[in-house]
């Protein structure tokens, strides 16, 4: 039997948010993947835009790399606005 490859599906809702991963579909080609994603993931007016990408084309970080990849940003508090204390007189900034 001829298998249809797996595509990951990303949908942007109408509220102007980023495309969000919602699941996957099987399809023979990219066009069909787009349509199958439309049939499956936007039946209730959920989306205004769809991306599909071959699942095998996605490169993902591995969970055992979690510490070296993500922990270093834990202590960089100076990247957050709340780190900078200003006198009340300045008002909202």
């Amino acid at each position: 039997m001829a298998d249809w490859p797996l595509y990951e599906v990303f949908v942007r809702s109408k509220h102007g948010l980023n495309h969000k991963h919602v699941g996957s579909v099987h399809a023979a080609d990219r066009q069909m993947a787009l349509e199958n994603a439309r049939e499956l993931y936007t039946r209730r007016n959920e989306g205004v835009s769809i991306w599909v990408v071959l699942a095998s084309d996605i490169t993902a970080s591995a969970p055992d790399e979690k510490e070296p990849l993500f922990d270093p940003s834990n202590d960089k508090v100076y990247r957050h606005a709340s780190f900078y204390e200003l006198p009340k007189e300045v008002g909202h900034m």
């Binding site: 249809w4 023979a28 080609d29």
Partner: peptide
């Protein structure tokens, strides 16, 4: 439906 799925794959390959 096997022939349909095969045809879709064959067409995708031609494309």
């Amino acid at each position: 439906g096997a022939w349909v799925r095969e045809a879709a794959v064959a067409h995708a390959e031609k494309q």
